[in-house]
């Protein structure tokens, strides 16, 4: 990057950003933080029938240090909230968070003493996928929205 003359920087960096975004969006290493019912639809999405691998997100990593998208799948109770926060903190930048299912978006119909009313009270969220649980098509839609976001955002390097 240092070799690029000063006056051409704008042109070159925007292309580079695009390329990096393109690379990032098709090599999603996801961390499935699966707690509840939505896990069933997560499994359905990840497996052969809906095949999330078509979107470059076929490799779940079970270590936060290796992953860049945190899929929060299922109800988050107050007991597990600190765990979720810790996992998020352990992930390396750049990182994204997908709130999978209505419980993670808003608490859903669990408006009670034990349930966190939306994980965005604890960690920042990039894409919300509502549904109780969301259908796999809905999940793929959310994933494509995330890819769009990854493509268009300013790429941290």
């Amino acid at each position: 990057m240092e070799t690029v003359p000063q006056q051409n920087t704008g042109f070159v960096t925007s292309k580079l950003e695009e390329m990096i975004g393109w690379a990032r969006k098709f090599s999603i290493f996801q961390y499935p933080f699966v707690t509840a019912c939505c896990g069933m639809e997560y499994m359905a999405t990840a497996c052969a029938h809906y095949d999330v691998d078509r979107f470059g997100a076929g490799l779940p990593r079970f270590s936060p240090r290796q992953s860049d998208v945190l899929f929060v799948v299922g109800t988050i109770s107050h007991k597990i909230a600190p765990v979720l926060k810790q996992i998020y903190d352990q992930m390396a930048d750049p990182k994204w968070v997908v709130a999978f299912g209505v419980c993670t978006c808003t608490g859903g119909f669990y408006d009670n003493y034990s349930t966190v009313q939306g994980i965005d009270t604890i960690i920042p969220v990039d894409v919300y996928i509502p549904g109780c649980p969301p259908r796999p098509e809905n999940v793929l839609d959310g994933l494509m929205k995330l890819q769009e976001k990854m493509q268009q955002q300013k790429q941290p390097m």
Partner: peptide, 21 residues
């Protein structure tokens, strides 16, 4: 207990049919 979401408490709040979901 990490997925305790108060099913038993919730069912005491609503009608019998609303517990089904």
């Amino acid at each position: 207990g990490y997925l305790h979401r108060a099913f038993e408490k919730d069912s005491e709040q609503f009608g019998y049919l609303q517990v089904i979901p």
